[in-house]
Design a protein around this nucleic acid. Structure first.
Length: 494
RNA sequence: GGCCCCAUGGUCAAGUGGACUAAGACACCGGUCUUUCAAGCCGGUAACCCGGGUUCGAAUCCCGGUGGGGUCACCA
């Protein structure tokens, strides 16, 4: 399928990718894939001050992990490269020169301090802070005097002053701005580097971007950008301003809201397919009641027209629910692959794994995964399958180890299990326990609960006989004996 | 403050003039299953911001309020 659609995600490498940025990238990706177009990655790295050393790699990794593969971008290149703005400075200078010689832009010699003072004054007197346009009125003589004095100039674009600029937005319809509210803004900084509103337009035009899909916070910038397109003689693209993602307190996402970065969700054990699905549902819906949608279904049904207009508050509980759904429904091979790093991080397994270990790990995962909501939980809930040095849950101790006769009961259980013939599986071990329960005339729970605590240190977990079978006879018997002895030592006889 | 956007349960959302006594999901609460905890299944609480219009009829269209958000840098 071929189409002329070209969209881009243009992050600034000033930090890691947060879920708002990820959602914007996702919608660009979905629109490109849904329309048979191209998805382009461009780095907006013109802010030398705020640029972070490894941010680019981090963003690439997060996008890749989410499965948002791009067709053109830094690293892989493409027909309209380079794809880092820092490598396109000549282009911006050429375009700026065109503006200047056409009389559409002018040099401004005001210092940042002067401008800041004017802004402050305007703010004090309750006026909108707006550049006066004073340098536009400079005579040729005044200009050369400034240059001779060594004052570095910025380049400002002249605004129409009257009339209206309308933004054609695929999600919001036509948004109209009075040109009188726009001031002559800077397109080139005094260091020869373009500002965002300029570089963005130059690149979108040069890269033949057809649809600019970005966060709503950019809507107010858009009339200025439309005016840049006009001044440069380019046709503006279709804009689509997607709603913001807000933190649970309705504020813009920031670090103080806890985990909001893609990398953090990954580290906690969220699956990329779950985050992909969740993010797609934040601001978009297939129009019916389906919630669990595969990548293919989402790509197949995505449209900008179905994107909502209001901001959404992200809800980590729903993400977690979706994650648990994926965790219990993806293939065994997939969970295994995803879970391994978490098992390693928890110190449960070593770097190298032999085939037997591998088989054992797979079995552990299969018995535990339906109860876990994240891979982090999965590793935590699996720990006693890999190590003997766990403590008994204090609440569990009070509840089930304090009953009288528990050590004897555990030793009875141990004897019963010791006599189980091969295979030492859930059916045989349960049969042995049921016989014992009947023989002793106790309730099932009276034997089962202390056994669970003895074997796992916990009061909750998978079916007890699955645990017993997985642990195997030797470890099961050892742990039962250990618990019996421990109780005698630690639980006061009452 | 100026400009811009937005407004359905706590949250995500369906809804585009009559099928709305307003869907579904998360969360919450109860029940069921069970050796525990989850999951599953069954059920429940909970919403059209307010006021005017237009219309036979408004969650839906228009206007005005209110509320929330965004933006007003030599940041992107």
């Amino acid at each position: 399928m071929y189409s002329g659609v070209r969209v881009r995600f243009a992050p600034s490498p000033t930090g890691s990718l947060h879920i708002g940025g990820a959602r914007t990238a996702l919608f660009n990706y979905l629109f490109a894939r849904a329309s048979g177009g191209s998805f382009i990655l461009r780095l907006e790295d013109t802010d030398f001050e705020r640029r972070l050393a490894h941010a680019e790699e981090g963003i690439n990794q997060s996008l890749t992990w989410l499965g948002l593969d791009w067709d053109e971008g830094p690293g892989i290149g493409g027909p309209y490269g380079p794809y880092r703005q820092s490598e396109r400075l000549d282009l911006y200078r050429q375009e700026a020169e065109r503006l200047l010689s056409a009389g559409l832009a002018y040099h401004c010699f005001c210092t940042p301090e002067e401008l800041a003072a004017e802004r402050e004054e305007a703010r004090q007197s309750g006026r909108a802070p707006r550049y006066s346009g004073r340098c536009c009125a400079l005579t040729a003589g005044e200009r050369s005097a400034k240059v001779a004095a060594g004052v570095k100039a910025t380049l400002r674009l002249k605004m129409p002053g009257d009339g209206k600029t309308v933004v054609d937005d695929a999600i919001r319809g036509e948004v109209v701005f009075e040109n009188a509210t726009l001031d002559d803004f800077i397109v080139m900084k005094s260091n020869g580097v373009p500002t965002y509103n300029f570089a963005c337009v130059v690149d979108d035009a040069a890269m033949r971007i057809t649809h600019v899909i970005r966060a709503e916070e950019h809507l107010s910038n858009t009339p200025k950008q439309v005016l840049v397109y006009r001044a440069l003689g380019y046709e503006p693209p279709v804009f689509a301003h997607v709603p913001m993602i807000l933190a649970p307190d309705r504020a813009k996402l920031s670090k103080r809201h806890g985990a909001t970065g893609v990398e953090e969700f990954r580290a906690q054990g969220y699956l990329p397919e779950a985050l992909f699905n969740y993010l797609a549902l934040l601001g978009w819906s297939p129009g019916d009641e389906r919630e669990l949608l595969s990548r293919e279904e989402i790509v197949g049904e995505f449209s900008l027209a179905a994107v909502s207009r209001h901001a959404a508050i992200y809800d980590v509980q729903k993400l977690t629910w979706l994650n648990s759904q994926y965790l219990s429904s993806v293939t065994a091979a997939r969970v295994y692959e995803l879970a391994l790093p978490f098992f390693r991080a928890a110190g449960l397994i070593s770097e190298t794994i032999n085939p037997q270990d591998s088989e054992y790990i797979r079995e552990v995962i299969e018995t535990v995964r339906s109860r876990a909501r994240t891979l982090g939980e999965l590793a935590d809930m699996s720990s006693y399958f890999f190590r003997d040095d766990f403590n008994y849950d204090p609440k569990g101790v009070r509840k089930v180890f304090h009953a009288s006769g528990v050590p004897a009961l555990l030793r009875e259980g141990k004897e019963a299990l010791a006599r189980v013939e091969e295979p030492f599986d859930p059916a045989n071990t349960e049969a042995a326990y049921r016989r014992l329960i009947e023989k002793l005339g106790v309730s099932g729970g009276a034997l089962i609960h202390p056994t669970r605590l003895a074997l796992t240190g916990r009061t909750v977990g998978p079916g007890l006989f699955d645990v017993i079978a997985l642990l195997g006879k030797r470890r099961t018997l050892e742990r039962l004996e250990r618990a019996a002895a421990w109780i005698i030592d630690h639980v006061p006889r009452g």
